[in-house]
């Protein structure tokens, strides 16, 4: 940032400097962000130290929300459910995303037909609202004999599977639907990354006698690493914040077996009217969000350095 040094400004230059200020251009953006992000974040942190309820009325400052949160076995259980959901979602989203990106990229190099169609099919899942994805998968997971997935599984001798009524399978079912939903995003980022790889480096490796697997592991993967890390952080944050799809698919049930952290916040506040506890859980989620953002910024900085 090489700010033009203008110490000892004259009157006219001073005027010019004000007219050159970036502030007026940024003011609408800043006001909206302060109103919709900064104010609520400060407010939720404040509320987390109270015993307020949603219905309003008097409240006092206390640490009770945090104490009851961390001594409540349900809270640990909820964090474990969230952790499992996030871990398996992001692992398989990246894995499938990578595979689909590779086969589409390779197909384009060979001018195969069907690459655009395949890409569109995958990306459609990205364009559909999360709640609708939840509604659609609820229909697919229909547990009666008329359910389509159970029917298809019965052909190969599996099932019937109690997709949404058994706690363990429900969590797997929700995670699977989320992988279906999120694969497109990882696919498109990795696909973009593959397009930016310098083909001469890969050619050189080929000439040096590296086979396809060696080229993949030793040449392509290291070049993609910064992009993969950024992808990983973005989808982790998105998955931690997931609300809509799970809400429509299971509502957190059966019991609390699929109640991920966003749903838990919503339920504490809008079903149990326990604002203090919901706010404390929100602070836990915010801490995760901020920690991941710091990781993201670090990766971003490193990626830019690598590119330079």
């Amino acid at each position: 940032m090489s700010v033009k040094n203008k110490n000892g400004l004259g009157q006219s230059k001073m005027k010019k400097r004000i007219s050159n200020s970036a502030l007026p251009w940024l003011l609408p953006l800043l006001s909206v962000l302060v109103f919709v992000f900064l104010f609520p974040v400060v407010e939720i942190v404040r509320l987390s130290f109270t015993n307020a309820t949603l219905n309003g009325g008097e409240y006092s400052y206390t640490l009770d929300s945090y104490i009851s949160l961390f001594t409540n076995p349900g809270f640990m259980q909820m964090l474990i459910v969230t952790g499992i959901f996030v871990f398996f979602s992001i692992t398989f989203q990246m894995l499938f995303g990578f595979l689909v990106a590779l086969i589409i990229d390779q197909g384009e190099k060979w001018n195969l037909k069907g690459t655009v169609l395949t890409r569109t099919a995958v990306l459609t899942a990205w364009a559909i609202p999360g709640v609708i994805i939840g509604v659609i998968w609820q229909m697919l997971y229909n547990e009666t004999d008329a359910g389509i997935i159970n029917y298809l599984l019965s052909i190969v001798g599996i099932g019937p599977v109690p997709f949404l009524s058994d706690p363990t399978t429900a969590l797997i079912a929700v995670t699977f639907a989320n992988v279906w939903r999120g694969t497109a995003f990882s696919m498109i980022l990795i696909y973009a990354g593959l397009k930016t790889l310098p083909s001469d480096v890969i050619e050189a490796a080929k000439i040096d006698g590296a086979n396809a697997i060696q080229r993949g592991m030793k040449v392509i993967l290291p070049m993609l690493t910064p992009m993969l890390l950024i992808n990983l952080v973005i989808i982790s944050i998105d998955t931690f914040n997931t609300f809509d799809m799970v809400m429509a698919l299971t509502g957190g049930g059966p019991g609390q077996s699929t109640e991920v952290i966003s749903l838990s916040i919503y339920n504490s506040i809008f079903n149990q009217f326990n604002l203090g506890q919901g706010a404390a859980t929100s602070v836990v989620l915010l801490t995760i969000n901020v920690a991941m953002t710091i990781v993201y910024i670090l990766f971003l900085g490193r990626g830019e350095k690598n590119a330079a």
């Binding site: 609520p40 407010e43 939720i44 914040n241 916040i265």
Partner: peptide, 18 residues
């Protein structure tokens, strides 16, 4: 960037009250 990462559920609650 940081605002981009904040959960929509979290911001909606104080906004709802306000």
């Amino acid at each position: 960037i940081l605002t981009q990462m904040i959960s929509a559920v979290v911001i909606s609650i104080p906004l709802y009250r306000l």
